[in-house]
Computed example of a mutant assay.
Amino acid sequence: MPKDTYFVNIDHRELTAVAARIFTAIGCAQAEADIVSKLLVTANLVGHDSHGVARIPRYVEYCRNGEVVPNQTATATFENAQIAIYDGNKGFGQSIGVQIMTAGIEKARHNGIAMIGVGNVGHLGRIGDWTEMAIEAGQVSMHFVNTSGAGMTVAPFGGVESRYATNPISIGMPNASGEPLVFDAATSMLAEGKIMVARNKGVNLPDGALTGSDGSPTNDPNALYEKPSAVMNSMGAHKGSGLAIMADLLAGSLGGGGCAQPGVTGLANGMLSILIDPNVFADASFVQTETTRFTDWVRSARPANPAKPVLLPGDPERNTRMEREKNGIPLDETTWRLIQETATSLKVTA
């Protein structure tokens, strides 16, 4: 199904301004529009186009349908010195995420460890944003994400019917004497947004990403959006499936938003985050020395391809960010057209 596709390269500052105008027009206060826009564009800058500005039309549609409500703040349903569980009140995931992570970082700073949960919140975006926010505060963090039912696209290992979403996991480790480590990945073979981007580009998916509605493999990204739909497959077969199930339980049952279930029509994310401040209880010099020693040891492995050195979690994103900050963010023609059409529908310029 490949087709001829052209790309436009757009400066990240210009793209951020376009996104902010759109979100302001849909009802967001300027501060919220700025947060959502900045984090969507950051996803593009680091190469996670699946969680970038391609989602703008969807976000606007969520608002129009009442699935996401601008200018909300999360409400604590339980809180003590180390734990807080929040209802996101259908707010934008990016602005709610900043609110709850700020609270969690502060709790970990005082107590060494904190656990934050949130449910009933809009799409939380690139989960690495929250890992990086903790790293900036010098904290280790782990994040487990699910949806409450809408967006169930992934089949458990051995199954051909969807039972949960892509359920990403992100883990971050500061590195005072080098680059921090950020692991951020869906538990499915591909993030759903990557399939959306492939559909916009008109390109096929890699083998193993989807199983068609007839039970046979398919490389066509359109198959996920047809009725009956294809299902996404887990990364690493039973291992990825097991991680997805545990992420759903942690984010859904402990985080308070509920696990995936049928009959849910509105997309709502849930997240459980654990934050650790090693400065409270650990020997800082030992943590720094071991982090540097171990990461240097891993990097020193002889590469299979001499032209491609061994990378650590977070390296590909840093490399992509440097290139795209310099040369602009490439958007395929369909993605850019859909953003322009969304802007026009709101009577703003793109």
Rank of each mutant, 00 (worst) to 15 (best):
M1K: 05
P2E: 12
T5F: 06
V8T: 14
I10C: 06
D11F: 03
T16M: 11
R21K: 03
I22H: 00
I22Q: 10
I22T: 09
I26Y: 10
D34W: 00
I35V: 10
K38M: 09
D49G: 04
S50C: 03
R55A: 10
I56L: 01
R58S: 13
V60N: 09
G66M: 06
V68T: 13
V69I: 15
N71P: 11
Q72D: 12
A74L: 05
F78T: 06
E79M: 15
Y86N: 04
G88I: 07
G88Q: 08
I96F: 11
M101P: 06
I105C: 10
R109S: 09
R109T: 14
H110L: 12
G112E: 03
I113N: 09
I113G: 11
I113H: 09
M115N: 00
M115W: 00
M115A: 07
I116D: 06
G117S: 05
G117C: 04
G122W: 06
I127K: 07
T131R: 09
E132M: 15
M133Q: 04
E136Q: 14
E136D: 13
Q139C: 11
T147D: 05
M152C: 05
M152I: 04
V154K: 02
F157P: 05
G158S: 01
G159N: 04
A165Y: 01
S170L: 11
S170C: 01
I171Y: 00
S177Q: 15
G178W: 02
E179H: 13
F183V: 11
D184K: 08
K201F: 13
K201S: 14
G202I: 02
N204Y: 12
D207I: 00
L210Q: 02
S216E: 08
P221Q: 01
P221H: 04
Y225A: 01
P228V: 06
A230T: 02
N233E: 00
S234N: 08
A237G: 12
A237Q: 09
H238V: 13
S241M: 03
S241T: 02
A244Q: 10
D248K: 03
A251R: 05
P262Q: 15
P262N: 14
G263Y: 05
L267K: 13
A268G: 11
M271N: 02
S273N: 14
L275G: 11
D277E: 07
F281C: 04
A284G: 13
T289Q: 08
T289N: 06
T291Q: 02
V298H: 05
R299M: 04
R299K: 07
S300G: 03
A301S: 02
A307P: 14
K308F: 14
P309F: 00
L311C: 15
N319F: 15
R324M: 09
N327V: 08
R337H: 12
L338C: 13
Q340L: 15
K347A: 10
T349V: 14
